[in-house]
Nucleic acid binder design. Structure first.
Lengths: 216, 216
DNA sequence: TTGGTTACATACCGACGGTACGTACCGCCA
DNA sequence: TGGCGGTACGTACCGTCGGTATGTAACCAA
């Protein structure tokens, strides 16, 4: 059991992150002042700077919380075992769901890259939503006869992650999110079906063409 | 011929945008002060605020310049007529090239969404790189027997644009950009091959499922 | 009890975006 | 050609915000 002081400290920190997430979601990073955060959390800047090194640090705390929520939702949909292709479909559905949350859109997608910087942003994503997508793509593609190397698997994962992110954005921006999501599922499902067809037909695995003889 | 005064004015404005693009590229949006911009352009804030309504406005001017350069490069690679599938490949190559420019990465990809906001950002992209991708995807898919409606075409365009953007990012972040680009071309080429195969086999066109899932 | 540490509060600073106002110069018409 | 209006800036200043320095009360170990 933590000491009484520790518990007060924890609740203060939590109140700060709560308010930060709220305001960052609603007004964006630059539109949110530290004064507004500490006012909403009913503390002062002293408390904030005791728990966090600065504005970027408390943003990152809110970022991690939003991401872990999204990750949990997707992970729940893809856990257990079964046909990887089916799990991929379930994961896509959960992904499209998670990406529509306002906090995720604003904090993770919009402000995340510019505030954290590409480097740190990628590190974070690696451990969360991208990590899941990567795992699924790998399980699907290593399940085949193709013997793809690590770099190639990574390339496919990046491509699918980008496709799903963009699709999620268009779903979120759509008037009718439900049918937009169905369209996305149909489109990506179709792309997957194309890959499966190539697999069944015993097509040669994708490999980077050498510079000398570029094939069309 | 513009008046002498007008020409001076134009050159001042251009000097401001030049310097703004340089600094925004190097230090990002929040890392660049208006004082630094006007100092580099050898004018004062009065001049800047005469030509632009504020920091966001001069950022948007730099944004448009960077985007139009990228767009021109891609458009050049895809102009003329010929097999849409081949043009798609040429466009992809040019896209991967353009997305590696530091100005594009920082100004358009990283800062663009958070500074301009989703709405305005999408408007800008619609008129430039995304517009080209959309046109290519449409030309490829309407060339088939599938009679896809507008929303479905748009969904495919968004998905491919997202895939290419993410791929471009990984190429730019890679140590060996050249081979990374080849891997991306192979992966996307493979996906396109899958779609072509489905087309040749007379597969049913993708459509939003009404509840039941498609084949596994 | 006491010394030290934790968990804040308060006061303040410099930088930055933005504004108000002044001014020199150009083109134009009488 | 001389005055006049507007353009194209320059200068001085303000409010806000992120960050820091310092003070202090509560808590805990010895």
């Amino acid at each position: 059991m933590r000491s009484r002081r520790q518990r007060f400290s924890d609740s203060t920190k939590q109140a700060l992150v709560d308010e930060a997430e709220r305001l960052f979601t609603e007004h964006g990073y630059s539109g949110t002042s530290l004064d507004a955060i500490v006012a909403g959390a009913d503390v002062t800047k002293g408390a904030l700077y005791h728990h966090f090194s600065g504005k970027q640090a408390i943003f990152e705390a809110a970022f991690e919380r939003v991401e872990s929520r999204a990750t949990a939702g997707i992970a729940r949909a893809t856990e257990g075992d079964g046909d990887p292709w089916l799990k991929a479909q379930a994961g896509l559905r959960a992904f499209l769901e998670a990406v529509q949350e306002p906090g995720y859109r604003q904090i993770v997608i919009s402000d995340g890259p510019s505030v954290l910087g590409h480097e740190r942003y990628r590190e974070q994503e690696e451990r969360s939503t991208y990590g899941i997508v990567d795992a699924i793509v790998r399980s699907v593609l290593t399940d085949t006869d193709w013997d793809l190397d690590d770099a190639m698997l990574d390339t496919f994962a990046r491509i699918f992650f980008g496709a799903m992110s963009a699709a999620g954005g268009s779903v979120a921006a759509s008037d009718d999110a439900a049918t937009a999501a169905l369209r996305v599922e149909a489109a990506i499902g179709f792309i997957l079906a194309g890959l499966q067809r190539l697999l069944e037909d015993g097509a040669e695995p994708p490999a980077p063409s050498t510079g000398a003889t570029s094939r069309t």
